[in-house]
Design a protein around this nucleic acid. Sequence first.
DNA 1: AAAAAAC
Length: 473
Amino acid sequence: MPTQLPFDQIGLSPDILRALKEQGYLHPTPIQAQAIPVVLQGRDVMGAAQTGTGKTAGFSLPIIQLLLAHANASASPARHPVRALILTPTRELADQVADNVKAYSRYTPLRSVVIFGGVDIGPQTQMLRAGVEIVIATPGRLLDHVQQKTLNLSQTQILVLDEADRMLDMGFLPDLQRIVNLLPTQRQSLLFSATFSPEIKKLAATFLKNPVTIEVARSNATAERVTQIVYKVNEDAKQAAVAHLLRGRNLKQVLVFSNTKIGASRLARQLEQQGIKASAIHGDKSQAERIAALEAFKNGAIDVLVATDVAARGLDIAELPCVINYDLPYNAEDYVHRIGRTGRAGASGDAISLYSDKDARFLADIEKLIKQKLSPVQLDGFVPKTIQDEERIGNDRRVAGDRRNDRRAPGGSSGYGTSARKEKVDPWFLKPYEPDQAPETARNSETGKTSSAAVSASKPQKKAALLGGLVKR
DNA sequence: AAAAAAC
């Protein structure tokens, strides 16, 4: 175990130390101990770190220090060009990183601003005009400001790509390329990613110069603190299973992940109807709603936050005791990120996943990634006794559903809860699945994303092509 | 397959 010097012995200015002390931080986490000296040396960094490892402080503390040192040596402090740019994939993450940067730089003259879409651009423009040294941003709105000439990146010496793998997944590569082209070639670049995939390595080869690789706490370290349970549940029974699980844990501070925006909204609504204080957070919510939901969850106004993978990574919600996967995620990596929302900073946590036949195809990938078997077990009193039963009931249900549709009458579903079946499983399980009252088409028009399927279908190819182009250049 | 991100 390497000796880790406290913060006040690793070359940070008293102004930074004061802010750290105020927040009760005395000793760096492993990633901070590794990253801070390297960043202070001016080296490029390729970092692999999970959420909750203190990664944000790992790059923002030395950046603040570097900017302070440079400002002191500078002959003309009259103008205030943007000197450090931190890019994140989601608005919430940008907001949080900005909160941290503000806290750490509180007693310094450095100013920072967070830039992302979905909110009024006016205040951002005003802040940029007044002058800021550090910008924390999502790519789209940042480029918007560049186009409007309210932001000049020609003197930006430090670039951070946070959650770079996520940014690639989200198709940000062209935007990243555009942004990097606006920066001086002489600069320091830091790239953080959950994994070092071939794509990430190519990105690093393009954007970084002779980087120092920093890697801490692989995913199995997370798994050690997190108790993972997978419950076998019929797809239609998931909502009731979540309600049951929530009641079993006193409803407090539970983050529930859904694979879809519609699913997240629906589940939150159903839970609320049952008197459970819940809100949904996803990309079709307005930014104000997203902020409100996150805030309500953090301050305890709601007990349950139902989220899409917008919240899978990076969100800093302290000490979550429990995370529930309503669905298994499409990407195995997202599973690691989701369960990483619990059991943080040494605390233990539970990660509960609901597993239906729909989720079956994702399980193997997840088990392979975490190098651990996740044998699905029954959720007592909530699932049929055998898989065969589950499949049969699933089939019966589909038949019943068709019949109901044919009749176009809500009472038509009563036929499938036969008394024979009722003896085998709990009555609630046979309660007919009630589709949402609002028609799907209405909700789709609400999202306004009718063409998204076609776009995403071609995305992997596009991504590969772009990366190929990058490497050749 | 889905989600995320600029107007």
